[in-house]
Design a protein around this nucleic acid. Structure first.
Lengths: 206, 206
DNA sequence: CAGAATCGTGACGAATTGTCACAAGCGAGG
DNA sequence: CCTCGCTTGTGACAATTCGTCACGATTCTG
């Protein structure tokens, strides 16, 4: 239980988390490894093996209880409870992020919003007031925030990332196409829909 | 050259594409496997091996020409030229997508925007007019669109996806948290920032 | 010309994954 | 109560992928 998961296992568990969350919302109280396999394109045997490595969560002939499995996976990933994150960028993408239920659904709360545009500072998005990027260090330290989401244009990305790093943020979700230079102890996840699309396109064309 | 790439290789080539695109924008005309490795966390030897499987693109003692390597990878992935895609959802996320340069940078053009809200239909976003989702079949078939981006709330996602499928779309980028039921010949890529975040969080906590 | 940098590539072990198989447990239906 | 179908948990093993070390070949710099 105290062992560190491999990257592959953790990635798959995350997928299961996503499927289970939705299955629960759809009112399914039970789900089989085969059903999860259909939504994730992960081998059903592999799924059972992944799960059984941490305990016997399922019932033979029946499947897994959606609720119970959700809790178990959250325990395994140690991501139960609430997590506060900071959002940088109050533009269109930032607005989309704050108005999406996708974070709240997984126990993630957007606890602060920053921007460098004087016109946007002080504006209210959702139930938060946009703060100046100059205050990122004080506010993040104060609220113990270690995760930041970058929703800024590529030109401002590096500067914004540096602010987050200075504020003690260790995980950055980068929605700009910029490459970020950060210290080795900071983890950057860059999401580029266009590249994902080209990747998908390759498999369609062949 | 005619061989189908494995999933792993194609995924890595996509990462290289992303790095090279940015490196080019930053004015770098040469790049080494070591530099790519730093941005992608992929082993430098692995990178050289991936590339050399398709030809000798680099120059010893120098590195790779950014431009040339970009072209070669595009050739390998067969994603050169322009690609038209459809966007469903003219809300905040849709607006963010249309205003982002991230697609255009990779030769992807948003050729149509759809929504089911009568108030939004007819509005102009960027240089496109929002069409009714009811017209998705006609318009997509007409423009030979096989890729769709879903930027709608989870409640509308399945319905919108069905519209795209009916229109002949084979690749769907799903930005909602919904699970989609589609025919087996349609490829769905779901992007869930919250789940990605929990995944990253696990590795930080251990 | 010497030296540093970098690619291309072989070899090999380690880790991961896919696959088949099957016993054991569970529920439904008669 | 008994049988049948479904599903999990798990072993065994092959296939694939990946990381690592090594090293010759090539190119640029000074």
């Amino acid at each position: 239980m105290a062992e560190r998961l491999t990257v592959g296992v953790a990635a798959r568990l995350s997928r299961y988390l996503q499927v289970l969350t939705q299955a629960k919302k759809m009112g399914k109280d039970r789900i089989s490894s085969q059903e999860i396999a259909e939504y994730t394109n992960i081998n059903a045997t592999q799924i059972r093996r992944d799960l059984s490595a941490f305990g016997k969560f399922g019932r033979r002939g029946v499947g897994y209880r959606t609720d119970g499995l959700l809790d178990e996976i959250r325990k395994i990933l140690r991501t139960q409870g609430q997590h506060n994150i900071a959002l940088v960028g109050a533009g269109r993408l930032g607005a989309a992020v704050t108005s999406s239920p996708i974070f709240a659904e997984h126990g993630i709360t957007i606890a602060a919003v920053f921007d460098n545009d004087p016109d946007k500072i002080g504006q209210v998005v959702g139930d938060l007031t946009v703060s100046s990027i100059d205050d990122v260090v004080d506010i993040c330290r104060d609220r113990n925030i270690i995760v930041g989401v970058l929703a800024v244009p590529a030109e401002s990305a590096q500067e914004a990332a540096q602010g987050l790093v200075d504020a003690g943020v260790k995980i950055i979700l980068n929605y700009s196409e910029a490459l970020l230079d950060v210290p080795p102890d900071v983890n950057v996840h860059t999401s580029n829909p266009a590249v994902d699309l080209l990747y998908a396109l390759y498999f369609h064309l062949t």
